[in-house]
Amino acid sequence: MKISSSLSRYLLLALCVGALAAPLLAQTSKTGFSAPHLKDGHPDLQGLWKLVASGPSPRAGSGIFSGMEYFPAALTARDELSRQPHQDLVAQCVTASVPGSTLYPPYPSLIVQDGSFVVIMYEFAHDVRIIPVDGSPHPKNFAALNGDSRGHWEGDTLVVDVTNFSKGKRWLNMGADYLDENSHVVERYTLTNPDTIGYEVTVEDPTVLVKPWTARVNLTRQPKGDQILEGACREGERDLDHYVSDDGKKLK
């Protein structure tokens, strides 16, 4: 039994889901639903979740990404980038980053709350985000491909502020819609019914986007008894051989 994911399976799935899915808007709670709370008084968002309505988009500027308004130079950069698929960190099994991890791969993620941390474990490439929710500020002199995430609660909504991204363009989909190191991401996670998290993300990027871009999707709770599996990607990956870099060298 081979459960480890391979890139080819991922790309195929990505194309299928992307083609079929139209994004559903996250719904605000109009039904008077009240989220269950943990002993620390905060809403219980824990569980295994998966983006069902909206998958990775094979084309730039489609679906939830249609709201991204680029500066002219950034638009040119995007089109050039789309001809260099090996530049996509997802294709290299590195990370889909933020908010790509939530919007991009059709794999589940596990949310765990530990009092002073919210941990989000993504099945894709066994990526993980450790999010302090203790009021601490973003650090100075720190950069990471996933940025630095700090969370706080606004009522029953978990708000995660993400800055400190590494220099470079990180792809949001296979069409090379991208964000760079100047982006500021604010995510809002709200339980809208027992089995749905409404996820809203707003991104400002003064070197890429003319104005802030907001996307909304729903995450659906996975059946009881399912668990997060090991998303080996680089491990044993053979498809990377098919990618060739700018100087003609094969990537491994």
């Binding site: 459960i3 474990m121 066994h126 993980v128 450790i130 668990q227 090991e230 080996a232």
Partner: peptide
């Protein structure tokens, strides 16, 4: 549950501490 996140290659393990059958016959790295 217990979660262990290793810095090395952001490897994580999900460890339920309530009775739950093992995933048997898989070929996981961890």
């Amino acid at each position: 549950m217990v979660i262990i996140v290793y810095q090395d290659l952001h490897t994580y393990r999900y460890i339920p501490t309530t009775p739950r059958p093992q995933i048997d016959g898989a070929d996981f790295w961890m």
